[in-house]
Design a protein around this nucleic acid. Structure first.
Lengths: 212, 212
DNA sequence: TAGATTGTTAATCGATTAACAATC
DNA sequence: TAGATTGTTAATCGATTAACAATC
């Protein structure tokens, strides 16, 4: 079934809606109007209504939106009603931190395995999980229904590993390597380029100097 | 001196230009046209020229752009010609990973201190740096010319700590806490909301299922 | 029924792309 | 000089905001 294409701008805002609605829900708020939500979130009410209507009407005229219902529906859109098995490739500082952090399990992202090509790390336990050699990756992905791979390896090897992942049928790559991955359309890539982010911060600080 | 406001869209692209130009430079490429660069980067030549011209002309008609010069100039725009002293607040998994990772030093982001409010961590050495109690933070920032704080603490304490940082004159906050920080205009905030990023990936995977 | 607020169409704004004169 | 390619203006496209009829 073909689905109307949703713009990146809208998709980018969905997790933020989800967060605010979750907080409202936890605070016991039952209903909210686009007007009220717009004030809390610092966006226009118009944008909120347009965004939601990309996915069909979640509200009711004269009433507003039911917080719990809206939260659930946006959760579904984001796939939060399903679980994802993920592996981490690269057991360095960042990979280990993400493995331990895994606040994400709460959201259905299940940490199932960890890989590295450094023999010194093999067998090391990270959050109850042995680091496995890269050679075992393909087999592991197939057997354990892994759909997301987290790439926390240097950019020099990232392209090669991404190709291996494609071959073995991965669905998504959460890419922390500082390189652009060109993947076929059915492998989704979400980049987290930390150094780019830090540079933008540096830019903003510098600009504000000039305006003094 | 007032400076023409540059759009977020342009700013967001600058680090990517910087990366590609750095790679071209390292590969020994001397000059490049917007046309060639557009093919490498998968954007339009028109956008490249428009983007660069926000900051004045870096090219030469009939010739193109000198790679090294362009790289240097974009680096200056991003503040890569200056150093920034930064502290990490929150010595948990993520904070420690970022401290150790610090590939960023190469770009002039100098890791100068680490703070936490957990007494068990006080004195623990991370990359040659003792974890300090939060009480020492204000004094430390003033004495060491710290301009960037990295927030790797839970969202419950992030707002309070951000307020403290503002008071002591921090210039920028690299915010990994999952909360929006509302700061005065002279304190810049760059958010890294990892769970939002992971949700977008989940969304993209889910959508592609529906289109099968 | 009257009031409130959505869903949706229309207007505006901004960003991207195309075109081309300027110029190296 | 002829060819190439920028810098910049104009056209297009898409996203945001405003307005309002539909309807709860």
């Amino acid at each position: 079934m073909a689905v109307k294409e949703i713009s990146q701008a809208v998709i980018g805002r969905l997790p933020r809606y989800f967060r605010f609605l979750g907080e409202l829900k936890d605070a016991g708020v039952e209903r909210i109007s686009s007007q009220e939500l717009s004030q809390i979130m610092n966006v226009t009410a118009s944008q909120i209504r347009q965004d939601f209507n990309n996915f069909g009407g979640f509200g009711q005229q004269g009433y507003g939106y039911n917080v719990e219902y809206l939260y659930t529906e946006i959760g579904k859109i984001l796939g939060m009603d399903k679980t994802h098995n993920l592996i981490i490739i690269g057991a360095g500082n960042l990979g280990q931190a993400l493995a331990n952090y895994m606040n994400f399990e709460r959201r259905g992202f299940i940490f199932t395995g960890m890989f590295d090509n450094n023999p010194e790390l093999y067998g090391k336990k990270i959050r109850g999980m042995h680091v496995r050699p890269m050679e075992e990756m393909a087999d592991f992905v197939r057997r354990n229904n892994v759909d997301i791979a987290v790439l926390t390896i240097p950019k020099t090897s990232a392209v090669k590993v991404a190709a291996q992942l494609t071959e073995v049928g991965i669905r998504g790559i959460w890419n922390f390597a500082h390189v652009d991955l060109e993947m076929p359309a059915d492998v989704k890539v979400e980049n987290v380029h930390l150094s780019d982010s830090l540079m933008r911060l540096s830019y903003m600080i510098g600009r504000s100097d000039e305006n003094e």
